[in-house]
Design a protein around this nucleic acid. Structure first.
Lengths: 175, 175
DNA sequence: AGCGCCATGTAATGCGTTACATGATTAT
DNA sequence: ATAATCATGTAACGCATTACATGGCGCT
């Protein structure tokens, strides 16, 4: 939410619509999750709400504060931990999605490099585990693990793809 | 936990070690999560604990009851919903991992077929969304979405792979 | 006048996390 | 003896979920 608000100031309802209509559907669009979270962020001083009556109904639009940007940058610049990998690298993707605008493309590129090397060792580790245990596993369990490993492998390939994309941009202009 | 206990009766500590040492590391191994969950399952009558002093220290080993098996089968036989796909198909993999032993290989095969067709339409939907919006997105956001889509595509390929594996098994004997 | 959407919340409940607590057994 | 591991829990806290509640605004 901090990242979304930083991209463009938004109200609670705006965020709800983002979560329910766009590809961000992974997240909860329930008011019981969003409004308390906004209140917490405001109490921490990371965002600041301002009531707007302009034209339509009353809306409370939130903007990130200076310390909000700092917190966002700190979150985005966290090193990639093992924990992040084990849980499917979803949180890593989320972080990556906001990098360009907040910490710059250099950070995005650096992130992709670090992700690639972390994934490389994790994949070989998982492949070794599978080879060692696949004889004692039920077929479906073995296949499920295979699915997970393939997921990591494509994320790895994707990281290389992303690096290429950034390299092309660097040559061909900023956009 | 119900699925694991069904594969082989286990104590709370057994489950903790499974979650902390094997490829099931996605799940929490904290006692504050496991023991209350076991207590809930037992209160629902899905598992049944029995204290064992055999040889070593005192352990409470849990087994699934008849209604526990029924509940497990009901969970495994749930149709694949959109909700399951959107959240990264992790819960689907978990279900698939237990299918062979609980509802049989025919159900596993049927599941893979249903998963493949569901993924096919979901992937084309996401690709269309990306094509339509990629010009207004930051580069990193676009790449993050691309990563998600590629993940679904490899899951789709994996489903076909799984179907082949089961077809081979059918020909070559039960194991 | 009434229906539906915009926009913001609150309340009850359940569950996970972190941290703390306990006792029994095996190894040094 | 003492440390480490086995094995089982409890307590405080925060947060998400589900459902309910409210009021202004626009259309028919």
């Amino acid at each position: 939410m901090l990242g979304l608000i930083q991209q463009k100031p938004a109200s609670g309802y705006d965020l709800r619509r983002l979560f329910s209509t766009t590809a961000l559907g992974t997240f909860s669009d329930s008011p019981g999750a969003i409004y308390p979270a906004l209140a917490r962020l405001e109490k921490q001083g990371l965002i600041c709400g301002r009531v707007e009556k302009s034209g339509l109904r009353q809306r409370q639009v939130f903007r990130v504060t200076a310390s909000g940007v700092v917190a966002l940058q700190r979150w985005l610049r966290q090193p990639i931990g093992r924990h992040d990998l084990v849980h499917g690298s979803d949180s890593l993707m989320l972080r990556f999605a906001f990098m360009d605008g907040v910490v710059g493309r250099d950070a995005s590129v650096e992130f992709l490099g670090a992700l690639a090397s972390a994934l490389e060792s994790y994949v070989t580790e998982l492949r070794a585990y599978l080879e060692q245990h696949k004889s004692e596993m039920p077929v479906s369990a073995m296949l499920a693990l295979e699915a997970g490993i393939r997921g990591y492998e494509t994320t790895l390939q994707w990281a290389h793809h992303g690096l290429e994309v950034y390299a092309l941009i660097q040559k061909g202009g900023t956009r």
